[in-house]
């Protein structure tokens, strides 16, 4: 039999072992992606378009699509999330109507992204006739993004002390003006951190996009800036395969001979992008915070 001290020692070492295993899993994943992927990354890989049936394609269009979709979906979702968060944190009374809306946000955040994508497909691609397009895709991404973004902005607002709101109220300023001119600026660092983190999540999303933004991309003419031309990169009505969708597609359809190599390169690019965003979130948050508190 063991005494309690020995059991303690055993159990604690066991917990150490678990933590080490988890850390090793991450180490393995990241090194696997980077070691296999980075050799594939070259200027040519990043700057040339993909190929459908032959080896040697690049990811330029997918990379552009990813960024474009991200920006467009953020333009749509930030104002909505901001409004909802302001209402929830600054105005919302405690009643059944509000708790139903809060539940709705929770439900949205727990919906599988493939279901969100399918809804986008049925509603925007087919019903509204937007087709497989950047617009449909960014709306689907917005649905996927809204709950998290709303919650993160809400938390940022809640962290600003009530003293500031009282100060506004005592001066006969409306809550809305106080929020816009006092609370939001003070909460900005953590809001930006939240937005950048959400961007990192959106970057890697694919399931919501395969039936909304589509799985193909027309040949793009980078100099064509006419938003109505089907070959213009900025046309929001054209289909747009993103990097994440590209990885999924070339692996499940296997029409390209070097699918594994391209996926490895793309995975590494995607992972590096996500890491950059995560790093940026922390860095920006700290920097703006310091600037704001240092006084002008």
């Amino acid at each position: 039999m063991f005494n309690s001290k020995q059991i303690n020692k055993l159990a604690i070492s066991f917990i150490y072992a678990i933590a080490i295993i988890v850390a090793l899993i991450l180490l393995f994943l990241v090194s696997n992606i980077l070691i296999n992927g980075i050799p594939e990354i070259s200027w040519k890989f990043i700057a040339s378009p993909s190929k459908t049936f032959e080896a040697g394609g690049g990811i330029s269009v997918q990379l552009f699509n990813t960024i474009y979709l991200l920006i467009l979906s953020m333009i749509i979702s930030i104002p909505i999330a901001l409004g909802a968060a302001i209402y929830l944190n600054e105005y919302a009374p405690k009643n059944d109507f509000i708790s139903v809306l809060k539940t709705a946000i929770e439900v949205l955040s727990s919906l599988p992204s493939i279901v969100v994508g399918l809804f986008g497909f049925m509603f925007f691609v087919l019903k509204f006739n937007f087709g497989f397009s950047i617009l449909s895709g960014s709306i689907a991404l917005t649905f996927f993004n809204l709950p998290l973004l709303t919650r993160s902005i809400e938390n940022s607002l809640a962290a600003i002390p009530n003293l500031q709101r009282e100060a506004g109220a005592a001066l006969g300023i409306s809550r809305f003006e106080t929020v816009i001119h006092v609370i939001l600026p003070a909460a900005l660092p953590s809001i930006i951190t939240g937005i950048v983190l959400a961007s990192g999540r959106v970057l890697g999303e694919a399931a919501a996009l395969i039936f909304t933004a589509g799985q193909s991309s027309p040949n793009l003419d980078w100099l064509n800036l006419n938003p109505f031309s089907p070959h213009s990169p900025i046309n929001p009505m054209r289909p747009a395969e993103t990097l994440a969708v590209h990885i999924w597609k070339i692996n499940s359809e296997a029409t390209i001979p070097d699918a594994t190599k391209i996926s490895a390169g793309s995975s590494a690019v995607l992972l590096i992008l996500v890491f950059i965003f995560n790093f940026l979130a922390r860095y920006l948050g700290n920097k703006i915070y310091k600037k704001m508190t240092a006084g002008k």
Binding site: L163, Q164, E166, A167, G168, A169, A170, L171, G172, I173, S174, H181, V182, P185, A186, M292, K296
Partner: peptide
Amino acid sequence: KFEVRRRIGMVFQRPNPFAKSIYNNITFA
């Protein structure tokens, strides 16, 4: 109530200036 609060000013226990310049604290409202 906003008009009332303008006419009846209030100062709280803990100083609560806005995170703005001295000048803008006074002119903001």
